[in-house]
Design a protein around this nucleic acid. Structure first.
Length: 1046
RNA sequence: GGGCGUUUAGCUCAGUUGGCUAGAGCAUCUCGUUUACACCGAGAGGGUCGGGGGUUCAAGUCCCUCAACGCCCA
């Protein structure tokens, strides 16, 4: 039995000792290279099964290309994952009673660093355990010095080029983590809520209007009511004002065709509309736009925690409104609705389900909130346009209007998605893109390298006044100042009518030293000191994690100054663009797009990667995404422990098809007995099917255990009597069995090779029939695998390999050669050769078992075969991929094999039906035609079917026998049993006859159809005719045998 | 609301340009412990390819339509 744990430990040590994954850049531009940068896992937690899948696919390709002789780099690393990591660290500290704000920024970052170190170690160990053949000496982290330099240089360059700006905007605010989020970090969720219809009295006392809202609490910040100008209701209120209840604010009624008119017969929205829309520019993005169009006031009534407050711009708080200040947004909603009801201003309430943006981190509803944030102008043609121009024309078509079409820039039209349909997702996302908010109100991350100060318009210098000439509030302008002479970049903008914000971006020291600048008197620390002496304060915010991830294919290779980090010199030239990015589809916008924009912008149009492979999502047996909170995940470490890394890898690769998400029924492992069983499922309130918190042991002895779901939701705690049950999945058994099969087949084969090596390479033509056949199958298999991997058809690779090894090699070849191999040196050469090639072909997906077997196979091999090139290598990881001459493919051997195998199967079926003991040798009586086939097959039929004697049908036939129809000949089988069971025999033949008659009827029907005979391809028609003849012959044989029984 | 994907054996999935009696693994049933492997071998049973309509000599495959499930975008 193959023991993965022992083999894996040993093999890892050998790879490590040989430094087997290390690679140096090449200076030869013609040398083929292959490179992948790992999608850096977040340092928030250990790797899950999705990572195992993604990294398996990358490793399969990496190992394949390494063996093909490409200079191959797989660059590993991890991501600091700003908001995600900060959230988990804060949670952990809070459980110890420590608050982030109490400990201060520096101490908190230090704590987070400790967490990062811990999980980075776990992750890298997991990658190694998985067999990932990364060049670990090059491991990067998105916040290490190399990456930090890249981030600062990129930020500075974009800032200087006018592609980064600061503005006061409505952002997606997460009130729990208290930071802004980018648009694509917001997840829409359907929420069962209400639509409230509120009466707003007209200021002139002439009645009221009814506004419909899902968010009554924001009414405190209303600064207008809007109506559609085409709405008949508009005439009555044109030019009027409304007296805002509670607040007492007088606000205008404006006309805007954004407003949906009420229409009971219309679309869903019109049916619930009242025709009047309350406008809250500070708390709704659409209202913000309406406010801009009608010059409405912006009144912010909420704080960063989402609660009602007068601290952020709300100045006209009335006595009546005072009671709501300090409430949470949820409480305020209830209280305000109650107020309207109590005052007779609540018209009605209806149930209403609508989608609400939620934070992808904290999962609470997003609050549109007004604040100053930094943006990358990704809508600029230099970024968005470049991302669109990168797309292969046959995948995405034309660029949208307003975008410069592709030209001669390197990288234009070279980006390909696989499966191709994702090219369209990428394309349409860029059509509707908005500027990218990159500032995050966090402590863990790259702090924004900008120093700000505010000056009054009156005190502004002449350059600033000149720069701002004609600029409105919130419009940033570059300014030529002494800071610019000293190497920094300088932006100014009006934050209000009379206040100016100055922002100075300082490049990293290494860039500053290389810049051409008028004033070289200050280095970077001095420049910063000078700024701070002048009243500038560094922006406390950090950058969105994806800003540094977006630079990953460059930063890991030493960009922008590789010479400062000697180990990175040459990497960009050799390995960027990388060959492939594999990732899940949810990352296309967050990450793929940004890497394309950045790499192209900073590297003269060059792509970060040529191909993007989007892999499947792993779901549980009920089609639900695996997640911690549902407790339906499978830990890769558990699978490596129970099945082995190769088993996990093989199974995952085999499940990777173009179209399907992977559905993986999850079983529970009983901690008492170690047995895997299907747990009892319950359905949660949210409609998820999950393992019940407490499960009974399948042993049926009343012992119990708690499920991962139970623990994740805090419903149960594991105890000694009732321990936690881990998950597994029977899906991995295939891989485990396969590794075991190879292990045992190799042990057997090695014991059969003992001859001295023939002096000359063996010529294929001189070998036995089965040898020619298996070599032919080897050549075909290799070609199929090459095609499959070239097209990222991982399941085809795995299935082809499995079929070749298990069926062709083990079931047929090894069985067929058993009687001859020990006395046939040439056959031993073939056996050793095929075995060696199998280990190579299998290595990319099952690196451990192949490496573990490699020394023994290498040592046992004798001789070589002409046309099959398998040079020796101390390790299979660095061995060459099999190179097999096309002439080895022998189609006549393949055909003879198929016929002989069919004959053996017919005989075996008969044996099984008559329950003949395996040891029993039988006798068959055949005509010349079948005799010829048996002779051509060189003993294979006899061996596989347990035939002791092949006699001629012309000789006298035994009394006790059975007949088989085969290719129109009668094969008489005897020595099966002592007596013929006439009933069983008749039943068998009747079934065969019925079967043949069905087929004949089918063929006759087809051939009597004129349309078929006239229209189908002639060779197809001829084939049908031949088949008909053959089946009819078989039928006659079977009928004759049946008649003989009566 | 727009887009994409899926629906094939009890389960998990293959099925390239339409063309042999629709395949595999697991599960089930029968037989077998033949010194590589019971994580095994030999054999068997099991599918009107989600429903309906159409094109065609021929449809799992192409077109239309309906339904269910999943994902993305608004």
């Amino acid at each position: 039995m193959y023991s993965p744990a022992d083999a894996e430990t040993d093999v890892l040590a050998r790879w490590d000792e040989a430094n087997a994954f290390a690679v140096e850049p090449t200076t030869d531009p013609d040398e083929p290279t292959y490179s992948i940068v790992i999608p850096p896992p977040n340092v928030t937690a250990a790797l899950h099964l999705g990572h195992a899948l993604n990294n398996t696919l990358q490793d399969v390709l990496t190992r394949y290309h390494r063996m093909r002789g490409d200079r191959t780099l797989w660059m590993p690393g991890t991501d600091h994952a700003g908001i995600a990591t900060q959230t988990v660290v804060e949670k952990r500290l809070l459980s110890q009673g420590i608050k982030r704000l109490d400990m201060g920024r520096e101490a908190f970052v230090e704590k987070t660093q400790e967490w990062k170190d811990e999980y980075e170690t776990v992750i890298l160990e997991q990658l190694k355990a998985l067999g990932a053949s990364c060049d670990y000496d090059r491991t990067r982290f998105t916040m290490d010095d190399v990456c930090a330099t890249a981030v600062r240089h990129a930020f500075f360059t974009l800032f200087q080029d006018g592609l980064i700006y600061r503005g006061k905007r409505l952002v997606n605010w997460d009130p729990v983590t208290r930071t802004a989020l980018a648009d694509d970090e917001v997840e829409m969720e359907e929420v069962e809520g209400h639509m409230w219809y509120l009466r707003y009295p007209l200021a002139d006392g002439s009645g009221h209007v009814v506004v419909a809202t899902t968010r009554p609490e924001t009414m405190l910040g209303d600064t207008g009511v809007a109506v559609n100008p085409n709405d008949p209701q508009a005439d009555a209120v044109r030019g009027k004002e409304v007296l805002l209840p509670i607040v007492g604010r007088t606000i205008p009624i404006v006309e805007d065709d954004y407003v949906v008119m009420a229409d009971p017969e219309g679309e869903a929205k019109a049916r619930i509309a009242s025709g009047f829309l309350k406008v809250t520019p500070a708390h709704d993005p659409n209202d913000w736009d309406i406010g801009l169009r009608h010059d409405l006031e912006v009144i912010n009534v909420m704080g960063p925690d989402g609660g009602i407050t007068d601290k952020y711009g709300w100045t006209d708080v009335s006595d009546e409104a005072r009671q709501f200040v300090g409430m949470s947004r949820e409480d305020a909603r209830t209280a305000i609705v109650a107020w309207f009801e109590a005052n007779g201003l609540l018209e009605k309430v209806i149930d209403y389900s609508h989608s609400v943006g939620h934070s992808y981190r904290s999962h609470v509803p997003i609050e549109p909130w007004l604040s100053d944030q930094w943006y990358v102008a990704v809508t600029d043609d230099r970024l968005r346009g470049s991302a669109l121009r990168a797309q292969a024309a046959d995948q995405a078509g034309e660029v949208p209007e307003g975008v410069t079409p592709p030209g001669d820039t390197p990288g234009d039209g070279a980006l390909r998605f696989m499966p191709p349909r994702y090219a369209r997702s990428y394309h349409s996302w860029h059509e509707n893109i908005r500027d990218w908010c990159i500032s995050r109100q966090l402590w863990w991350g790259h702090q924004i390298p900008v120093w700000n100060r505010t000056v009054s318009v009156a005190d502004a210098s002449p350059e600033i006044t000149a720069a701002l000439d004609g600029a409105g509030v919130d419009q940033a302008r570059p300014v030529e100042s002494s800071w610019v002479s000293a190497g920094a970049a300088h932006l100014v903008r009006l934050v209000t009518e009379d206040e100016i914000e100055e922002s100075v971006c300082v490049p990293p020291a290494s860039s500053l030293g290389r810049l051409e600048r008028a004033d070289t008197s200050m280095d970077e620390p001095q420049l910063v000191a000078a700024l701070e002496a002048d009243g500038y304060v560094r922006d406390p915010d950090v950058l969105d994690t994806w800003f540094s991830s977006g630079l990953w294919p460059m930063s890991t290779m030493g960009w922008p100054w590789p010479e400062d980090f000697p180990e990175t010199v040459g990497l960009l030239d050799s390995f960027n663009p990388t060959s492939l990015l594999t990732t899940a589809r949810e990352i296309i916008t967050l990450w793929v797009s940004r890497m394309v924009m950045f790499n192209r912008y900073f590297m003269d149009g060059q792509l970060p990667f040529q191909d993007v492979f989007i892999h499947a999502m792993i779901q549980d047996g009920h089609g639900q995404k695996m997640s911690k909170s549902l407790g339906n995940g499978v830990d890769p470490r558990d699978i490596i422990h129970t099945h082995g890394a190769d088993a996990m890898r093989f199974s995952l690769a085999q499940m990777t098809t173009d179209t399907q998400d992977l559905r993986m029924p999850v079983d529970t492992i009983c901690p008492h007995t170690g047995e895997a069983f299907t747990p009892e499922f319950i359905i949660t309130a949210a409609g998820h099917t999950v393992a019940a918190p407490i499960q009974q042991s399948p042993a049926g002895d009343g012992r119990t255990m708690v499920s991962l779901y139970g623990v994740a939701t805090g419903q149960v705690e594991p105890t000694d009597d009732q321990p936690l049950a881990r998950n597994t999945s029977a899906k991995f058994d295939v891989g485990r069995n396969f590794a075991n099969k190879v292990w045992n087949a190799t042990r057997f084969a090695l014991g059969s090779i003992e001859a001295d090596a023939p002096a000359e390479p063996v010529a294929v033509a001189d070998t036995a029939f089965v040898d020619r056949w298996i070599l032919s199958r080897l050549a075909e298999t290799t070609a199929t695998i090459d095609n499959a991997l070239g097209e990222y058809h991982f399941n085809v690779y795995a299935d082809t390999l499995y079929h070749f090894v298990w069926n062709d090699f083990c079931d047929n070849y090894l069985e067929a050669i058993k009687p001859t191999v020990r006395d046939t040196p040439e056959q031993q050469v073939v056996l050793g050769t095929v075995l060696d090639a199998i280990l190579r072909l299998m290595h990319p997906v099952c690196p451990f078992v192949t490496e573990a077997l490699w020394p023994a196979v290498s040592a046992a091999r004798i001789g070589t075969i002409a046309g099959v090139d398998l040079p020796e290598s101390p390790l299979v990881v660095n061995a060459t991929w099999p190179s097999i001459d096309g002439a080895v493919i022998d189609s006549s051997a393949a055909e003879t094999f198929d016929r002989a195998h069919n004959l053996a199967t017919e005989i075996r079926r008969l044996r099984a039906q008559r329950e003949v003991k395996p040891k029993q040798r039988i006798t068959i009586h055949v005509d010349d035609q079948v005799g010829g086939l048996i002779s051509d097959a060189g003993g294979m039929v006899e061996t596989l079917a347990g035939v002791g004697t092949v006699a001629s049908a012309n000789e006298e036939l035994p009394q006790v026998s059975s007949a088989i129809a085969f290719e129109g000949s009668q094969v008489i089988v005897s020595d099966l049993v002592d007596e013929v069971d006439v009933g069983a025999e008749a039943e068998r033949l009747d079934k065969a006859i019925a079967d043949l008659e069905g087929q004949i009827k089918n063929l006759e029907g087809r051939l009597s159809n004129e349309g078929y005979v006239n229209n189908a391809k002639p060779e197809l028609v001829q084939e049908s005719r031949d088949q008909l003849v053959a089946k009819q012959a078989d039928l006659e044989v079977a009928q004759a045998a049946r008649a003989a029984l009566d």
